[in-house]
Computed example of a mutant assay.
Amino acid sequence: MIISSTANPRMKHIRALATRQEREKAQQFFIEGIRIVGEAVQMGADIETLIYAPSLLKSHFALELVHEQQERGISCLEVSSEVFRSLSTKDGPQGIGAVVHQRWEMLEQVTPQQNDFWVALDAAQDPGNIGTILRTSDAVGCSGLILLDHSADPYDSGALRASMGAVFSQRLIKATFDDFILWKQRHMLSVIGTSDAASTDYRTTTYHRPVVLLMGSEREGLSPFQQSICDLMIQIPMVGRSDSLNLAVATGIVLYEIFYQTRT
């Protein structure tokens, strides 16, 4: 039966997932669009419900995707174009979306392997930056992303768009900075931090895995205390008038240097 009312309780729940509070309460998030839904299916994401609007769904691949999920026993809700547009944040919705269960790991249960390569972000506030860092982390083969203290939500719609599906390939961990210190010490991990005041150029040091790249917030960077727990502080040279780089850009620059030096 097609759902044609925007007041339908299940549709109300999906719209409520636009808020972080509801996402954390339900431990779910909503994605829309052929590419990201296809990526979720291919990566084995835990899909709660697939939502589709036949009048908007023109892609043969997307129609096959719906059919395959129906065959697998996934709940698939057919909705009117009006209802789907009420769920969508896009100007031209493609007529397919999904409610997906969030996937988190506990830091104390993670045992770093010899070739591991992690990114840790302290109090990063821009979901777009988190999504972009996830995308870059996936590109260089990172083990995952550790979000410390009060970081933005990687399941925010802005982060999901920027990640281009990498949210499904990267391991995600939430922890306090104190827990991060204990984890570093327990496993004797090398932690690299960044600061414009550091004396070491990021290209002149030698990196070895396992390693964690620790980045501070967009506004404050790493505090003196956070810098003190790093095994090495590095800086990215700048010669223009700007005194800082975007967090995702700076993270990407260092990630690729580590990647180039340590890939096998």
Rank of each mutant, 00 (worst) to 15 (best):
T194N: 07
F61A: 10
M43F: 10
V110W: 04
V254A: 02
V41R: 15
G221I: 11
A248D: 07
E39P: 00
A139I: 00
A248S: 14
I51S: 04
T264L: 10
G97Q: 09
F225L: 10
V239P: 03
E105V: 07
S81K: 12
Q113T: 02
I31E: 01
Y256K: 03
F168G: 00
G92K: 12
L107G: 08
G221E: 14
L172T: 04
E82V: 11
Q28Y: 04
S88I: 01
A7H: 09
F29Y: 14
F117Q: 04
F177T: 14
A248L: 09
E64N: 15
R10M: 12
R263T: 06
L189T: 07
G240I: 10
L87A: 13
A248E: 04
M215Q: 11
E71T: 14
Q226F: 09
G131M: 02
S143A: 06
R103G: 03
R186L: 11
A250D: 04
S137F: 00
F29C: 06
L87Q: 07
E218I: 15
T205I: 13
D153L: 01
F177A: 10
V110L: 10
C142Y: 04
L255T: 10
M106C: 10
G95W: 07
M1R: 05
R103M: 10
G33V: 05
E64Y: 06
D116M: 08
M106A: 07
C76Y: 12
T176S: 15
V212T: 09
G33L: 06
L148A: 04
S157D: 08
S55F: 06
R135G: 00
V239I: 13
R161A: 04
R263E: 11
G131W: 00
P210Y: 02
E64K: 13
G131R: 01
D178H: 13
A16T: 02
R23V: 03
R161G: 05
S217E: 08
R20V: 12
S55A: 12
S75F: 15
E68Q: 15
V100E: 02
G97D: 05
L148G: 00
S244Q: 12
K25Q: 04
L232Y: 04
R23K: 08
S143F: 01
S5M: 11
L57E: 09
Y256G: 02
E32T: 01
D126S: 09
S81C: 09
A123R: 15
Q261I: 12
I3F: 06
V167G: 00
E71K: 15
I96W: 00
E105C: 08
R241G: 06
D46T: 12
Q170P: 02
M164Y: 00
T200R: 03
V99T: 11
R35S: 13
R35G: 03
R10C: 07
Q227M: 13
R203G: 03
H67N: 12
I3K: 05
I234C: 09
I14C: 02
S228Q: 11
C230H: 08
D122H: 15
